[in-house]
Amino acid sequence: MKSLQRVLTVVGAASAVLATTGFAFADPIPETTIWGLPRDASVEGHRVDWLIKTTNGFVILLFVVMCVWMGIAVLKHNKDHKAEYDHGDSKHHIAVAMGISALIFFVVDGNLWFNSTIDVNSTFWNHEAADKDPNAVRIEINAHQWAWDARYAGADGKFNTKDDIVTTNDVRVPVGAPVVLQLASTDVIHSFYLPNFRIKQDAAPGMINRMWFKAKETGDFDIGCTQHCGIHHYKMKARLTVLEPAAYKNWLAEMGTQLSLARSEAANANDKGANWGWEWKRHDDNSDARNGAVSEAEHDHDHKVAAQAGGDR
């Protein structure tokens, strides 16, 4: 009895420590209103939110104008009076129609195009700047039916080596640093979706895709799959945990220790299934790495296959 109590005490104390250092899951905070976008936890998400919200304004205005126009026409221009005989094809009429269309196009679509072009080039698809940031955290994500595996480079900073840290459905990142992801898939196409960060990117077999984000607050968030990937698509859920940088470092170190313990067991030493990583793809490497997710042992062979397939494309 006493020993059990002691064990429980130790476990309790350990969990408390783990909770404060970010080892334990907390549930994401539920949203409260259906009338808005989910909580924005990313440094750059406001760009998407702003563009969506300004477009909402334009769209609601245009829709209301259309409805009022139709409503008045139906109520006022009914069979009580004759219709005006007008083909609407005078130069004046055409100029008005073209003018209104051009105005809507340049204001509404122009706003979307202009801001989206800036946002995409400066931020969302600017993987180069994110990857060059000295604080950047690099993670390889391998999707498979129906889970997300994440791979951290480990102490040596190199992917696809023995000290890589691999987790399943558990992605942890530090707050405030660019998190650069490279995504691949083992089987079918999946899509890595961070609703609270306003981004998603497909993970497809035979290619490595990129995405990046920067968290602005700590907490736990849902990672979803947005590409239909089979029977348990709806369960392909993972957890993103944003930690303070120190807690993140602790977690990574602890994971490294646990890993080396596990590695020492002979059974795990040559676990090819766990060695799905790839050499980090440089930002200027646009070659299409076919069979990106390959096992360490087969790497050289598959690299050649990859090169051939890339050429064929």
Binding site: V48, S116, D119, V120, S191
Partner: peptide
């Protein structure tokens, strides 16, 4: 593009 990144699928 940027709004589709969120709303896609």
């Amino acid at each position: 593009i940027s709004t589709d990144l969120y709303l896609h699928d």
